[in-house]
């Protein structure tokens, strides 16, 4: 079953390391069978987190966001976040190759922002990105995917949720899910992410502990594709001058919703196709 290229390749490595070339070595000791003591403490800290702790994390996040030029705002509820997005839509002029359009993920928290009111308020179109039906005819699915891609490439603003945000480095964590194209956070010149206060984590250690061992996150683990995003796209390749928006967004805004209705809590974890199309 092992392809010949792999067999010869790993054989050479084993030989170089002084082992029998054609015997797979047992490497179970190299991997974790359960959380380490440090991770248990981290998980415990996460579970015991109080409202006050969360506000402190937000403060830390805002501090870390400054040097990476991530704009963080705390908003009381999804309605306020929706209004803030509407104001941002008004304020931001489209780039030469984009039009004043918004593309937004299909996601519980984003659905609650009332972005559908935007066209009436400001004549700005809002594209949603519904999940593709895996049972759909491949040609139709391809056509739908292409249509979504065109809309994302044209929009001047992309609105996404996020799985987490790490306060320590002001890093958004996005895991791939149907209905949540990764390019929404990448192609439009302005990226707006909306999260709830309880999605702020301390640091990468906490994130990885949750993704490894906390059942409701570990089921998906790191997913097929996970992205860390810390502020806008940057380059300093021309005479070391810092320029934002090299390829990805020129601006990244993070709206932290302090209290969301119960049904929105952890909606980001409802990952299956059926859950999202109900």
């Amino acid at each position: 079953m092992i392809p010949p290229d792999q067999k010869a390749f790993l054989g050479r490595i084993r030989q170089a390391l002084g082992h029998a070339p054609h015997e797979s070595r047992n490497g179970s000791h190299l991997f974790m069978q359960g959380p380490s003591r440090e991770e248990l403490q981290i998980l415990e800290r996460y579970r015991q987190r109080t409202a006050k702790d969360r506000e402190e994390l937000l403060e830390q996040l805002m501090e870390a966001a400054k040097p990476v030029h991530l704009c963080v705002r705390r908003l009381p509820d999804p309605e306020a976040a929706g209004a803030a997005i509407a104001a941002l839509v008004q304020e931001k002029a489209p780039e030469p190759d984009t039009v004043k359009q918004v593309v937004a993920w299909r996601h519980g928290l984003i659905d609650g922002l009332d972005l559908h009111l935007l066209p009436e308020q400001s004549a700005v179109r809002v594209h949603r990105t519904p999940p593709l039906d895996p049972l759909m005819d491949p040609a139709r699915r391809h056509a739908e995917r292409e249509a979504q891609r065109r809309a994302i490439a044209k929009a001047h603003m992309g609105v996404t949720a996020a799985d987490f945000c790490m306060a320590d480095t002001a890093t958004l964590v996005l895991r791939a899910r149907p209905g949540q194209p990764r390019s929404v956070a990448l192609l439009p010149p302005v990226h707006v992410a909306v999260i709830t206060l309880d999605q702020i984590l301390w640091d990468m250690k906490e994130l990885f502990a949750l993704l490894r061992w906390e059942a409701r996150f570990a089921a998906q683990g790191l997913s097929r594709y996970m992205a860390f995003i810390s502020g806008p796209s940057k380059t300093a390749d021309i005479e070391a001058t810092m320029v934002h928006g090299a390829h990805g967004p020129r601006e990244v805004h993070l709206f932290v919703v302090a209290s969301a209705p119960g049904r929105l809590q952890y909606v980001g974890q409802r990952s299956t196709f059926s859950a999202l199309t109900k």
Binding site: L132, P134, R141, R224, A227, F228, I229, S230
Partner: peptide, 19 residues
């Protein structure tokens, strides 16, 4: 932290919108 860190484990699934 670098601006972008991406973790890739394979191609997109049929129901994924992009990748």
């Amino acid at each position: 932290m670098a601006t972008y860190v991406s973790y890739t484990a394979g191609p997109r699934r049929p129901e994924d919108s992009d990748g």
